[in-house]
Simulated assay, not measured.
Amino acid sequence: MTEEKKNNVEAPVEDLFSTKDIDTTIKGLEKASETWYEQAAEQTHAVSGDTYVKLDCGVLTVDQLNYFLNSMPFELTFADDNNQFLYYNNMMPAEEMLAGRKPGQVGNAIAYCHPERARKGAAAVVNLLRTGKQKKFRLAVPGNGPDKCVLHDYIAMHDEDGRFRGVNEQIYDLMPAIQWYLKHTGQKLVDDPNVTADTVTGPSQHKEAEKKEAPQVADATSGASHQE
C-alpha cells in the first residue's frame, strides 16, 4: 500500500452531521430545531445584558461583547469541534450579508449549512484544520466580478493545551480595502499578460501544486446560510 493510500485509509472522517456529543455540547436539545438558540439559553441559564463576563484579557458585559463582535469588518461564524454551528455576529439583516444567516440556523450541524454538493469539500477543509495540516484555509467565492472579491477564511481554533476546538470562519469583501489602497498610493491594477484568468476560484490561475492540495469546495457562497 502506498503512503498516499495509507493516509487516505487512516484519515479520520468528518462527522458534518454532529451526531455525537462533546464536553461542551448542550445535551437534550434537537440540533436542527429552529428554536435551539432560545432553548439552549434557557437550559444553561446563559447570562445576558449587563452581566459581566471574564475573558482571558478583559472584563466586558454581554452587551459590550455583542457591540464589539457586531462591529467587526467581517462576518464571523463559530463552529465547535463537533461540527455544530453555534454563533454568528448579527451585524446586519440576512439579506444584506455576504453569507446570509438567521437565528433559527444556530445549533444546526454544519452539514445543513451547505448544500449536499459542497459537503465533501467542507469536510476536507475542516479536516485540514483539525489535523493541523493547515492553520488557515482561504477560499475565494467564484463569479464575484471586477467590483467584488469575497473571501472565506477558515481558521483553526485551539484551547490553551493546543487541542482543536473548532473553526472560526471570517467572510469579507476585500475590494474596498484594495480600492482604498490604490486611491491613497496612486497605484492601479493592471492585467498580467503572463497569468491566465481563473474565473472559477479566484482572480488568477493557481499553481498546479496548490490545486492538488486545496479541497474543491463546490459552494463557497452559502457559508452557514443554506437550508435544505
Rank of each mutant, 00 (worst) to 15 (best):
E3W: 04
E3H: 11
K6Q: 03
A11Y: 07
A11F: 06
P12T: 03
V13Y: 04
E14T: 05
F17W: 13
S18A: 15
S18K: 01
D21A: 13
D21N: 13
I22D: 09
I22T: 13
D23T: 11
K27C: 06
E30L: 05
E30T: 11
E30V: 07
K31Q: 10
S33L: 03
S33M: 02
S33E: 05
E34D: 06
T35I: 06
W36M: 01
Y37A: 05
E38R: 08
A40G: 12
Q43N: 02
H45P: 00
G49H: 12
G49N: 05
G49P: 10
G49F: 05
Y52R: 14
V53I: 15
D56W: 09
V59A: 04
V62A: 15
L65I: 13
L65R: 06
N66Q: 12
N66A: 13
S71V: 03
M72V: 03
P73G: 00
E75F: 02
E75L: 10
F78M: 12
L86C: 13
Y88P: 00
M91F: 08
P93A: 11
E95A: 12
A99V: 03
A99L: 00
G100P: 06
G100D: 01
K102H: 10
P103F: 10
G104R: 12
V106Y: 00
V106F: 02
A109H: 00
P115I: 04
E116Y: 01
E116F: 06
R117K: 14
A123H: 01
A123C: 12
A123F: 02
A123D: 00
A123E: 07
A124W: 00
V126F: 00
V126Q: 02
L128F: 09
L129S: 00
G132R: 06
K133F: 12
A140L: 13
V141C: 14
V141F: 15
P142Q: 11
G143A: 06
N144I: 08
K148W: 09
L151T: 08
L151W: 14
H152D: 14
H152I: 10
D159S: 04
D159Y: 02
E160R: 09
F164A: 10
F164R: 03
E169W: 04
Q170V: 10
I171C: 01
D173M: 10
L174I: 05
L174Y: 11
M175Y: 05
A177M: 11
I178W: 13
L182K: 10
L182N: 12
T185N: 08
G186K: 07
K188L: 11
V190A: 13
D191P: 03
D192S: 07
D192V: 09
V195F: 06
V195A: 10
A197T: 11
A197E: 09
T199N: 05
V200W: 03
G202F: 08
S204H: 14
Q205I: 01
A209K: 08
K212D: 06
A214N: 06
A218S: 09
Q227I: 11
E228G: 12
E228T: 07
